[in-house]
Amino acid sequence: MNSLQDALYNWLTIKVVCDARPDDLAAKETRDFFEEMLTTEHHVSKIEITTDDVMYFVSYQHGEETKKARYPRELIEIMLNQINQEPKKYEDYIIED
């Protein structure tokens, strides 16, 4: 089981990718996986994200408590930056029925 901090980091990283690439099905499935982990395993709800030039700030409900976390933009956006630098490596393959 991932720690709550790891799950939030992973979720935020892939959420940034999903927001930038709304048609990326693999990113969406991965985001959904981490959202489910956050809600079912870590009992997190009401996640809110804000940013400034340097950090992402995450506020969330953990059980009865409101908690906050922060992550450097550089770390959170690394996956999106890699995708943007080498888009052919990260093509979205659509499965047709």
Rank of each mutant, 00 (worst) to 15 (best):
K67I: 07
K67E: 09
K28C: 08
D32H: 09
N2G: 00
M79S: 11
Y90E: 07
T30L: 15
M55V: 02
I78V: 12
G63A: 04
Y9E: 07
K67D: 06
R21V: 02
K68G: 09
E65K: 11
T51G: 00
P72N: 04
I95S: 14
I95G: 13
F34R: 02
L12T: 00
D53H: 10
Y56K: 01
M37R: 11
P87I: 02
A27M: 02
V17K: 01
T39S: 15
P22H: 04
T30W: 03
V17R: 03
I78L: 13
D97V: 07
V58H: 00
T50M: 01
F57G: 06
V16A: 04
K15T: 04
I14V: 15
Q82L: 15
F34L: 03
D52K: 08
Q61I: 12
K46P: 00
S45Y: 13
P87R: 07
Y90G: 06
T51A: 02
G63S: 07
V58G: 03
I49R: 07
V44M: 02
Q5K: 08
T40K: 13
E41F: 04
K88Y: 13
L75A: 10
D92M: 14
E64F: 14
R31S: 07
E74I: 15
Y71P: 01
T39L: 03
G63D: 06
E74R: 13
H42L: 07
Q61N: 14
M1C: 05
E48D: 15
D23K: 13
N81T: 12
E77F: 04
Q5C: 02
L38P: 04
I47N: 06
K89Y: 14
E36G: 11
M1N: 10
K88L: 14
S59T: 11
T13Q: 09
T30G: 00
E41P: 05
L80H: 06
E64S: 15
N10S: 10
A69T: 09
I49C: 03
L75Y: 08
N2K: 08
T50F: 04
T30R: 14
L25T: 12
D97N: 14
H62V: 06
L75R: 02
T51Y: 04
A20H: 10
D24M: 06
